[in-house]
Simulated assay, not measured.
Amino acid sequence: MDNFLQINTNKDVVVIGDIHGCFLEFLEMIQKIKDRYGEDTLIISVGDTVDRGDYNLEVLQLCFELKEKGDFIEVQSNHNLKLYRWFKGKNVNISYGMKKTVDQILSLSEEKKEILKERYIKYYESLPLYLIINSSVLVAHAGIKDEMIGKTGKKVKDFVIYGETTGRFTEEGFPERVDWTKGRKITDSSPKIVYGHVVYRQPYINNLCYGIDTGCVLGNMLTGYNPFKDEFIQVKAKKRYFSFD
């Protein structure tokens, strides 16, 4: 379950930032991607497809269907891991928008809940910890340091899923994050790293690292990035679905 995946492809590739239950924007993004690059474009999700938004189960269903068609890969992420743990009966804190996902699940019939549970557990267990494409692009939910590439284990998993923090907390009560991209030393063989997790108003580019969570669920936009053509696609949020206020 916690292995990375290495693939080679001749297809166009577009990586999509954190979706967080924004189903309508996700659909629009997929259509824009296919209009620009073709029906067989490989779509990659940086994870955090659920929580905070209004259509979490619809997003999950679409991810299941896209993966079965073979042109979609999602990497592991903190919100989706939390849902996996909840389905497995672990004691998790239902907060920060997870309640929206859980409420949707609890509204289902017992039969549908059980089907979704089994399908999601199987789906999440199939996801790579991170993804390496053509040895030149790496996709990880919260990023990855160069010395971790090609490795697994608890330290790598924690960084890839949760990122790096200072140990302090912001006024809102969230962990204070470290910009791990600043100290990166670039060489001719350094891969592009595409990640989500940290919200930016616009894509954040630094030392061949591309932060593409642009806060769609907060009312900003959903961002897609083609790392081989160095092109962005963006979809404006239909509304603000969630606020930390």
Rank of each mutant, 00 (worst) to 15 (best):
V194P: 01
L129E: 03
Y123V: 06
E171T: 02
E176S: 04
W180P: 02
V178P: 00
T214L: 11
S190M: 06
N226H: 06
Y120E: 08
R119N: 11
E125D: 06
Y200T: 04
E176C: 00
D230H: 11
D230P: 03
R184F: 06
E231A: 10
I212W: 10
E147I: 11
Y124G: 02
W180N: 02
F174R: 05
I186H: 09
T187Q: 09
D158W: 01
K117G: 05
I212Q: 11
Y123A: 05
E118D: 10
K151C: 01
L116W: 14
C209R: 10
I161H: 05
G153S: 06
F169D: 01
K229Q: 13
Y204R: 11
G173P: 05
K229M: 09
E172Y: 14
K117F: 12
L208C: 04
T187I: 08
I161F: 09
I212P: 01
T187E: 11
E118I: 11
N220Y: 12
R201W: 12
E164C: 00
K122R: 15
L129C: 01
K154P: 10
F232G: 05
G196P: 02
R177I: 01
K151I: 00
Y162W: 14
F232C: 03
R119S: 09
L129Q: 03
R168K: 15
K117Y: 09
E176P: 01
I193G: 02
K157N: 06
G167C: 06
G150V: 07
K229V: 09
P203G: 06
P128K: 13
I132T: 08
T223H: 10
T170W: 03
K157R: 13
I144W: 05
F232D: 10
G211R: 09
K151R: 14
V194I: 15
V178N: 03
K154N: 12
I133A: 08
P128Y: 15
K229G: 07
G215E: 13
K112S: 14
I132R: 14
V156F: 04
G173T: 07
I133C: 00
Y210D: 00
I212D: 06
N134I: 13
L208H: 09
P191W: 13
V178S: 00
Y195H: 09
M148Q: 15
Y120C: 00
P175Y: 02
K192P: 00
I133E: 09
E171I: 08
T152A: 04
K192Y: 05
V199Q: 14
K117A: 05
Y200E: 07
G219L: 13
Y123F: 15
G153Y: 05
H141G: 00
L138C: 15
T223D: 07
I132P: 01
E164H: 03
N207I: 05
E176Y: 00
H141A: 03
F228M: 01
I121Y: 06
E172M: 08
